[in-house]
Amino acid sequence: MSALFTFLGTRFVRALVALWLVSTVVFVVMRLSGDPVPLLLPPDAPRAEIFRVRAELGLDRPILVQYGVFLGNVLAGDFGRSIHFREPAMRVVASYLPATVELGLAAFALAALVALPIGVVSAVKRNSLLDHMAMSLALVGQAAPTFFLGILFILLISLKAGLVPTSGRGTWMHLVLPALTLGAFAMASIARLTRSAVLEALGMDYVRTARAKGLAEIWVVAKHTLRNAALPIVTITGLQFGTLLGGAVVTETVFAWPGIGRLAIQSIYNRDYPVVQAAVFLSAVMFIILNFVIDVIYGVLDPRVRAR
């Protein structure tokens, strides 16, 4: 068990370093992108007013001091006040977070619920018409640019067929297209990996033994194959959940979904540094926590990791 803790402890330290690097890069890039003060004030604002606002935001201090203050505040979870919303940045981001989590979970659930059975069936009925069709579709799903998939779905499912609304958030009908768009890549990846993991497990000696002792095929697959195929599937599934966060930026923009991805993009255009920093930092934290959780699940599922 202590080996598992050492393993997780190392991962934890690396995660902290990664977070520090992420916040530093964000700080540098956002500070390089120019002075936000002229955007906040009317064009004819007196110089004294400009200096006052700069001092108020701490932008008149040396960059290293700003960086030091920034790091200290990050530790306290304080990203400053949003320049655009005139509220604490973290509170702004937090208020947009539920929409992103809702979209992410829906996309992930959709992807997993569709992809896992398809992957298993494709492996069991290898080289059948269904297998070929599913895997071709998965290849297209992996290669298709997310934003264009969204456009295609809007065109075909929303505008031509009139089944669901084109954009916005509200009922579950609004969730269908964004979730499908965001989940498409994950769905394709999970289906392909499930198929190959199950195929590999089906070729093992213990599966032959299970068959030889007369076990029904459904139990061979359910009890002996799936459990052993689960490891790589859990890994890729978790990783896919992480990439969903990145895909959310594009998907939320296409569907005008009020989540933190769209908020981050709008805040970059508004030069609202505190909100951008908070949004990126929060995304990184979620991603890193997810990876951590995957490592723990991995350790629980596979005794070999614990022994290492």
Binding site: R14, A15, V17, A18, L19, L21, V22, V25, V26, V29, M30, L32, S33, G34, L245, G246, A248, V249, V250, G261, A264, I265, I268, Y269, R271, V276, A279, V280, S283, A284, F287, I288
Partner: peptide
């Protein structure tokens, strides 16, 4: 490498291009 993979790169890309 870990740090770069730790958050949606597209946000950083957009930030840099905006600069």
């Amino acid at each position: 490498a870990d740090a770069q993979l730790a958050f949606p790169f597209i946000l950083l890309a957009i930030g840099i291009i905006a600069v």
